[in-house]
Design a protein around this nucleic acid. Structure first.
Lengths: 225, 225
DNA sequence: GATTAAATGTGACTTTAATCACTTTTTTTT
DNA sequence: AAAAAAAAGTGATTAAAGTCACATTTAATC
């Protein structure tokens, strides 16, 4: 399925386009299948395309001074990836990788910029998108610094349960060291945090399979920090 | 000086406006003088206006689970404040306060939205603005988590020296507890970090007056973390 | 200028989570 | 299925920074 017009998951921005504009997008857009762990964009490489996640799940990650990657966010279908770089830098400022098998559309930057320059409604929707995205980082920034480990772990579990899987029984397609990079901790501490939450009966853990047993308590731990 | 047309510090976005549009802006815009510590916008309050910092210096801050504020960023003239909320929420998601005497223009949201909807060039400049802003937070997020205290303190000193004051002798118009909220630490630890940096001869501290004595070393501490 | 209040500095102590070293389990490869 | 590699778990130890309690300095107010 390579047709933008009938794309099941068109962004609000793309919804604003005229038929001609969709045509332009279509012609400068390539759909790619990715398996888990494959790179979507790579920090430091030339940014010739924006990626749009159509299916699957991806992580946004960025190298820090220690040399290890920090996961900035887990993104779901309907997310633009690499968009922040396009208009301001020639080089991607962060990486993104599939964390499960995914479909991604690569949109040529030049065409994207053209749409942005000529269609105010399109640009407006992007502004909205970016604002929401940024606000989510504000929350994350503050939370990550004021909550301790178990609280951050609880946050992440609730995120995967409520936002991603919409179920109290779910799997997290991340290794322990990825979870660590996500909650700003270490592999060992992730193990311990999960054990803590397990011990008090909030969750059941089995490898990457999780079940929330006491949602209220988990929520309380997430909120209390 | 209440005239947008002759505003000394018009944003790139406003540069794109036609005379009529500037006129619209003008009519829905109010300039306000603020003294240090005054609120610009307040988290949780209705967002009827966007603020544009014309003169001075401001902090963007947000309440965390602990009940204390975290400083997200120090912003300079030319920054939009509260813009992320305008299109997505009725209520401000963060606060902003002047950290020194400042001038702010409050722009009515409705007019702002109107410009956004009708002028693609305006919207595009905002997209660029937001992208740059978000990227700066990515850096901050990763740095704050991978650097330890002295590194973060060094970052902040370099920021005030290089970005804000463009001099190795400068003052920081923040209390120690504000510095703590900025580098994600505590008042006491700020004192100690400054002492550390002082002891090894990188800086000279006297209240809020600072001098960088060994720029290279400070840079190294900032980079090494 | 004295008094009060706010801000900052300092040492002792505690807590949290990182690090290290090693074991066990799971997954992948041959 | 065996061997190798990767991932995850575990206990002991360490380190970094937070907390607490109090002293000192600076600024504000009467």
């Amino acid at each position: 399925m390579e047709n933008c017009e009938f794309c099941k998951i068109r962004s609000k921005a793309v919804e604003t386009l005229t038929q001609d504009e969709v045509q332009l997008l279509q012609e400068n857009c390539a759909e790619v299948d990715l398996v888990a762990d494959e790179n979507i964009i790579k920090e430091g490489s030339l940014s010739s395309h924006i990626a749009y996640l159509k299916e699957g799940l991806a992580k946004i990650h960025k190298k820090g001074v220690k040399g290890t990657d920090q996961i900035l966010k887990i993104v779901q279908p309907g997310s633009y990836i690499g968009i922040q770089t396009v208009l301001t830098s020639k080089v991607h400022q962060y990486s993104a990788s599939a964390v499960e098998n995914s479909k991604v559309c690569y949109i040529d930057i030049t065409s994207f910029k053209q749409l942005l320059s000529t269609n105010a409604a399109f640009a407006k929707e992007l502004v909205i998108y970016l604002c929401q995205d940024e606000l989510s980082y504000f929350n994350r920034f503050v939370n990550v610094h004021q909550k301790q480990l178990d609280g951050r772990m609880a946050d992440t579990l609730l995120f995967f349960a409520d936002e991603i899987n919409k179920s109290r029984i779910f799997t997290i397609p991340l290794k322990r060291y990825d979870l660590a990079a996500l909650i700003c901790s270490t592999r060992e501490s992730v193990t311990r945090a999960l054990k803590d939450l397990s011990d008090i009966g909030t969750i059941k853990v089995n490898g990457n399979s999780f079940e929330i047993l006491n949602y209220e308590l988990l929520k309380k731990i997430s909120e209390k920090g």
